[in-house]
Amino acid sequence: MVTTDESQPNRRRWLHRASAAAIATAVLGVGATGISVAVVSSKHSNGTGAGTTATPSSSDSSSGSSSDDGSSSSGVGSADSGSTSQGGSNGS
């Protein structure tokens, strides 16, 4: 049997402080986890706060259909004078 010189009130005070520290650690840990989850969730939301997932339209989902280059800005412009034609869009 192991005995110590500590008196009974001291031991009780030490146990009390240790249990208080454990509870504080648990509470703070749960809180921090909650905050982390909230931050990560807000990063993954679509900016509207709705958090919805975009799904492709039926036309986009048709395999092998004409896909874009990802740019919808106009691709036509004015040709410099003197430039040589490299192709033709002729009526058909």
Partner: peptide, 20 residues
């Protein structure tokens, strides 16, 4: 640089085509 015309060989207009 693209020629846009009603028929191949017809007079048309020149435009540039970057994409699309």
């Amino acid at each position: 640089v693209i020629t846009v015309a009603e028929r191949a060989g017809d007079q048309g207009v020149l435009v540039t085509l970057a994409h699309g």
